[in-house]
Nucleic acid binder design. Structure first.
Length: 644
RNA sequence: GCCGCUGUAGCUCAGUGGUAGAGCGCGUCAUUGGUAAUGACGAGGCCGGAAGUUCAAUUCUUCCCAGCGGCACCA
């Protein structure tokens, strides 16, 4: 290449700068202005992020990324990971560094070390990180030959790094980054120097174990998590957000509002209390109405089923470790972990005609799964749960229309619960699966065609299908931006085959039906957990365990309070009364804390006029209404969204 | 299941090698008050379970169980 050739850089606004030879991003930024030079983080060269110090030798389209850009976050977090690694390496020379990527909201780094880190270590490491930032070391990129790099790291005693390099495909450039005397294998890019990460913009959060390369057969490494932001203010906002999320934690609210509890003797299996069960029943009644509307038939199937059926269905082979079993009458029985094989048994009774299809069988099926102890998490991951499960038995040419109808139903349900931000994922065949590849080809094509015809946007989730078929997964986003996968639709050609389901077609011949497994809420337990966190316990009236509390100003109104309470009950409202000889302030405070949506206060005046003074949760306003008017307002509002 | 941390009154938590304490809640009594805490008194604990060390264990050690934070798993 001609060394003196001009290099012309084109900026996003179309302006052009020409240099007499290779030029770095730093130089370009400085030429444009000192402000930009200071704020610049990396430069995007023809769509690829480059370090500012890297020489651009060809004419290129470039964009300078500054610390004001969202894209800066990832780079900065990645740097934070390197700084963490340098600090740890310095403080604990016996560790081996492995990998340390940027993640949502922060970064982590995995270290191989015999002794685990303690939270005290974190404080020390954090201090040392601040020192590294204050030293403001240049971060220097270099390239190295593959074999040299492997030897280089092996000689340093960094076997994990050597293993990582060995796994990089031949021919790919291996880049190293050096800051001071710390060198790490890294794709980059990085900030120009360690000082560019604000010393008060990051925080180490927690230590945890993590398997080397994410494989539970491998040894466990020590992972340190941190968070990093562009400004101190952003960091603070993030920490506040975490605190807010913690206040919504359904386990905490579940205790406060007496919704449910767990105990050792039944780990992972909720005990529903009256308040929680009220919510549960509302949700169930709602779904039952929806299913009726969409022509589902509800059934109920046994809890304990002979192992033979699970062997036939294929579940035994894949999931026996996670099934509860028992023995009785010299039969091996398993508590059902799912409902589908039982639903096929219902389908198989008698002879089904093509005229009966699609046949939609729904069950609020109570299932048990022996989940690994470490997976349990409040209501979100339990060992006993109930699904809003249903199986649609149909012919192949009904898959598309059934999918469309299901998607419509699901969207209605989510909207009624207040979730409007829904993502769809398409999961195709997993590595371990049942059925022939041609069967999978067909199932995947059918489902793809179906989802395309719904017009919904979806993303591909490769290899994440169920073992018997591909699936759509529906992910909703809650009030504080967290995603929850709830709904699912799975196309299954395998189970009908295995359990020998058939129907008589118009040609008078025997045909295999297709099974569509589908759920909208997923499990009631988990969905209610999500609702608790979504609403932070302040449920809309139709779900609230207690909808209204009536109380008097003095005990002179006790009889009247009882009458109002009776009228509320007669109106079908979930009412309570509070006759304690406490001051009104005290009672208001207490019922507000209990998140009761409405408080009716009746004093001498209200009793006289047959009115109530209404105070709604979240408002300090009060309004005096005729009793019958107040009851009507609540009655209307307490209707479920599908009943309005 | 794996790594780490935690387990004390109904709840939230303090504490100690010599068998325990606070606030809230709960009960009793007084108080009858107009929209986020009226006061006094009182009752509550096998300090997660089992072993071990010790004159003595809630405290130290080991194992188990459960919870929490991650990892892995999730039909």
């Amino acid at each position: 290449m001609n060394k003196t050739a001009n290099v012309t850089l084109t900026l996003p606004d179309g302006s052009v700068r020409t240099y007499p030879g290779p030029v770095t991003g730093s130089t370009l930024a400085a030429d444009i202005g000192p402000g930009l030079a200071k704020a610049a983080i990396v430069i995007v060269v023809n769509g690829e992020q480059w370090d500012l110090a890297r020489k651009i030798e060809q004419d290129s389209d470039v964009t300078i990324i500054t610390n004001r850009d969202e894209a800066a976050l990832e780079i900065l977090r990645h740097d934070a990971a390197h700084i963490l690694a340098e600090a740890v390496k310095k403080l604990y020379p016996d560790v081996q560094v492995t990998i340390g990527p940027a993640i949502d909201n922060g970064f982590y780094y995995d270290f191989a070390r015999k002794i685990p880190f303690t939270t005290d270590d974190l404080v020390i490491i954090e201090k040392h990180m601040v020192e590294i930032i204050e030293r403001d070391e240049d971060i220097i990129r270099s390239e190295m030959d593959r074999d040299d790099a492997i030897k280089f790291f092996r000689d340093m005693g960094e076997d994990y790094k050597a293993e990582l390099i060995a796994a990089i495909p031949e021919g790919q450039t291996i880049t190293l980054y050096r800051q001071g005397d710390f060198i790490d294998l890294c794709r980059g890019p990085h900030l120009p120097s360690t000082g560019r990460l604000g010393k008060d913009c990051f925080k180490l959060m927690k230590v945890a174990g993590a398997y080397w390369r994410g494989d539970s057969n491998n040894e466990m490494l020590q992972r340190i998590y941190g968070t990093a932001w562009r400004t101190k203010k952003e960091l603070k906002a993030y920490l506040t957000r975490l605190e807010e999320a913690e206040k919504r934690d359904h386990r905490k609210i579940g205790k406060q509002m007496k919704l449910f509890h767990f105990q050792e003797e039944a780990a992972g299996m909720p005990f529903w209390h009256p308040n929680g069960w009220t919510i549960y029943q509302q949700v169930e009644a709602y779904i039952r109405r929806k299913q009726k509307k969409y022509d589902y038939q509800e059934i109920k199937t046994p809890q304990l089923v002979d192992r033979v059926l699970w062997e036939k269905s294929g579940h035994w082979e894949k999931f026996r470790e996670h099934m509860y079993t028992t023995e009785s009458d010299s039969r091996n029985l398993a508590l059902k972990p799912m409902n589908c094989p039982c639903h096929v048994q219902v389908f198989n009774q008698g002879i089904v005609s093509y005229r009966d299809l699609p046949l939609r069988l729904a069950e609020f099926g109570s299932c048990h799964r022996y989940e690994p102890s470490g997976a349990l998490h409040g209501l979100m991951r339990v060992r006993s749960f109930v699904q809003d499960d249903a199986h649609i038995f149909c012919s192949k040419d009904q898959i598309t229309s059934e999918t469309e109808i299901f998607c419509k139903m699901l969207m209605e349900v989510y909207e009624d619960f207040g979730f409007t931000d829904i993502k769809v994922k398409f999961s195709d065949r997993p590595e371990i699966r049942a059925g022939l590849d041609i069967t999978w080809d067909e199932a995947e094509n059918c489902l793809l065609e179906a989802v395309n015809s719904t017009g919904l946007d979806y993303t591909l989730n490769p290899g994440e299908g169920a073992f018997y078929g591909p699936k759509l997964e529906f992910v909703l986003t809650d009030a504080i931006g967290r995603d929850w996968q709830c709904g699912t639709l799975q196309v299954d050609f395998v189970l009908p085959e295995r359990l020998d389901a058939s129907y008589i077609g118009s040609d008078n011949g025997k045909h295999r039906p297709v099974m569509l497994h589908r759920a909208i809420l997923g499990s009631f337990e988990r969905f209610i957990g999500i609702l608790i966190e979504e609403h932070a316990g302040r449920f809309p009236l139709w779900l609230a365990p207690t909808q209204v509390v009536v109380t008097g100003i003095t005990s002179d109104q006790d009889d009247h309070v009882r009458k109002v309470y009776e009228q509320l009950k007669a109106a079908g409202l979930r009412a309570e009364m509070d006759l304690r000889s406490e001051k009104i302030n005290y009672k208001i405070r207490e019922h507000s804390h209990a998140k009761t949506p409405a408080i009716f206060v009746v004093g001498a005046r209200e009793q006289e006029e047959n009115t109530v003074t209404v105070r709604r949760l979240g408002s300090k306003q009060q309004q005096t209404l005729d009793l019958s008017a107040a009851i009507n307002v609540l009655k209307l509002e307490s209707l479920a969204p599908d009943q309005r």
